[in-house]
Nucleic acid binder design. Sequence first.
RNA 1: GCCCGGGUGGCGGAAUGGCAGACGCGGCGGAUUCAAAAUCCGCUGUCCGAAAGGGCGUGUGGGUUCGAAUCCCACCCCGGGCACCA
Length: 920
Amino acid sequence: MAYDHRSIEHTWQQRWEDEGLYRSRVDWNRPKHYALTMLPYPSGDLHMGHWYAMTPSDARARFMRMRGHNVLFPIGFDAFGLPAENAAVQRGVHPAEWTWKNIDRMRTQLRSMGAMFDWEREAVSCDPSYYRWTEWLFKQMVEHGVAYRGEAMVNWSPTLQTVLANEQVIDGKDERTGQPVVQKMMEQWFFAITRYADELLDFDSIDWPDPIRLMQTNWIGRSEGARVDFSIAEGPAAGEPLTVFTTRPDTLWGATFMVVAPEHPLLAEITTDDRRDEVTAYVQAASRRTELERIADDRDKTGVFTGGYAVNPVNQEQIPIWVADYVLISYGTGAIMAVPAHDQRDFEFARRFGLTVAPVIHPEGGDPLDEPAMTESYVGPGVMINSGPIDGVTVNDLKGRENPSVAAAIDWLVEHGAGEESINYRIRDWLISRQRYWGSPIPMIHRADGTVESVPDDQLPVVLPEDVPFDGTSPLARTPSFTETVDSDGNRARRETDTLDTFMCSSWYWFRYLSPAYDGGAFDPEEAAYWLPVDTYTGGAEHAVMHLLYARFFVKAMRDMGLFDAAATGMTAHGRDSDGLFDEPFLLLRNQGQILGEDRTGDRVVVSGEEVGTRVLADRVVVDAGAADDAGVVVGELLRRTENILQVSTAAGRVTVEVPETAVVEIPSIPGPNDVNQLRHHLEIQRMSKSKGNVVNPDDLVVEYGADTVRTYLMFAFEWQKGGPWNSQGIMGSRRFIEDVWKIGTIEYQPEAVSGDASAQLRRRIHQTTARVESGLEAFKFNTSVAALMALRNDLTEAARTGAVDPQVWSEGVDTLLKLLAPIAPHVTEELWRRRGNDSSIHLVAWPVSDPEIAAEETITMVLQVNGKVRDRVDVPADITEADAEAEALASARIQEWTEGKIVRKIISRPPKLVNVVVS
RNA sequence: GCCCGGGUGGCGGAAUGGCAGACGCGGCGGAUUCAAAAUCCGCUGUCCGAAAGGGCGUGUGGGUUCGAAUCCCACCCCGGGCACCA
């Protein structure tokens, strides 16, 4: 009976659905396990990346279930976002229609995986029943002061006609489109994520990969130091403080000038009249430059003198104030004290503009700094000099108060009222307003008097109007039926027309999964009490600082707003200690790598034609001409093709070939008339993309090989956390494996010359395999689990051929193979399990237990070494004593050969693994 | 520039400081076949050797150790993150 994946997979997917096999229900008598995979964006097609992310997660969730956990493994869609709106602009399809159609299609594709998703818990973020609670959560944030409206310098994307969060801007460009972003002052809604900066730096209670923790730590960017008030010396602002943040207050006595950012509020008052034109020109030039241009420019510092001076509070010295764009308004106070002797940026600026450099640190174990000769700043350890009260204090390489000189300076500042100890963060508050249509509306109303009020809860959600213009910026703002409303006093008012950053939708979705239809709140506290928090979260590392940081912030804010109080009470009622369970969203996080396109060699082309200048004008191009090679003027591999221009790698080097329309193109492998566009060029390993033509479609693979084979291959062929290039031949290995399992599961076993040894050996392998598969699944090293199963397949195939094992052991072997493989290849194992006479699903049976005593080898091949080199091997009992092991080694003829005539210095005996005889 | 992660056969990858290369792909040889595909059996790091066996071998150089892919130091290369953060 042949293995037919099509009927098997279809049948079981249907039956599991009908029987509700994957419905998860609260059951306080069983331990729970909340396994979560990052929800997909409904782009239209499930690609290999989705399969690669989800099927191993599914396998692990199934494994946890077989181990006795009550597992929740939900799925949904992150359905708001720009691509839907672009589709509307470009193709005239309404975003809602486009999105829901994609979701429909992707649901079908997701079902073809055979994953244990509980579809009753599906949540879709663009559904009003979902975004009602996104809006409600926003309101909660407003009411608790976590969300606020503020004027700030924002990242404006002229291309997208919207603002972006800091996290969405990379190198001064929008991280999605790569288009430049400019700075602009705007009033927008923010979440006060900075308030949680310190708590977000604490990862002690969660098991997350180090790189992610590091990236978040760097992103938050905590710096310890001091705020110091300099005072403006003259002019309209005379006597006013000019505050700076510094991590090196110990170098205050070396401050020789100050620099303010071009946007600094006090700049105009500081600037003297004779300098005003120059300063104004500089500020204007700076504002015109995008972030991108500032980076693209050579790093030479620019700036101008304001004419103003400030008084250094530590020594009353007057120092000049400059304006320069290397000081950023968005960090610290937007003004710095410059200590050129001990800060490289300040040093470069000072040298360029001829400003004073005054060393205040005597380098450790070196000569005093020779100011005129210095070519770079000194940032190492030493001893303070020329610094009045802190002279002689040690300077080390540590940060903050751990550096004695910094501690001494802070103490002095505080004592003299000149400054205060301060911590500064790189992270900014999260800007959540977007001037887009396809997002959750912000449930706020602008009253005629300029104040803002929220839409009452019983009027939520504010529903997106359907009929809006999709031909430019902010469709909602241009839809009067939406914007015109009345406030709580019945006066005419205007609705907020910005929508929420879609990252907000994905910052709480795993709560909605618990009870997607619940209308008494964002989630049902009864469900939350049982299922929360998420035990295992899997997804791509590209979300390291956005989604994963926002999600952590959300949970902390929700906790502080009391949104988990009811759930905590429920936990306590069931005897579960809720302490600390609502501090973090995901207890364990693991990231999968990325599947890349396959390496591909280009067509071997034989071109005939004539040379015209530097290129060859073809009249005939033949692919794989074989013996007819000599006919060509150009023969080689096609490296690149741009329209009809070919780059061919030949023995003599690279040649450019132009293929006019009149030329004949012959590709034997493609029937019918061929044209130049069908030539395949060389492709390096890189991301899959339609334009490169290296996309592997999982749907096609499922049709050809079956979901079980695709799942097995994805788990076997890569180190999951690393990923790598696709290999179209490799999948056959997994297909053969599944077919072999089918054979093993369907043959009639014929015992012949049954031997006790062979039976015991197979039992040993069964129990060893169980342990190996288990540890692989636990540790996300799925490839080792599959490898172990393939090895068991080999043992069982051998057993079937020889007939040497006891029928009972054979049967145990087959059953164990099926159970261990069930999480990975759920369909074929279910089919075989039932055929073997079992009435209920294999996915409900208990995970096999590996008995260490049965798994233990009786005899082990012991390695005999001389001076650490393997010279012989002997089979010894597993419980051999150290003395016997040594005796075995010395009795070995081969060891004797190698030790003959030498003096045995010592013998390292590690029974039963090895004996190392050290001679000289 | 700074901070991470990683370099193991032709390829994907295994390996609590103890037999490097499990498992698979590919390749080679054989069986089967009219033939091919599929399937089955065997071999497959590299060099020397008829073989027995031996030399070399986990990016490079050094170190620790009886013993290093694994630990330490320096360097090279690849991937990722941040990037004038005071």
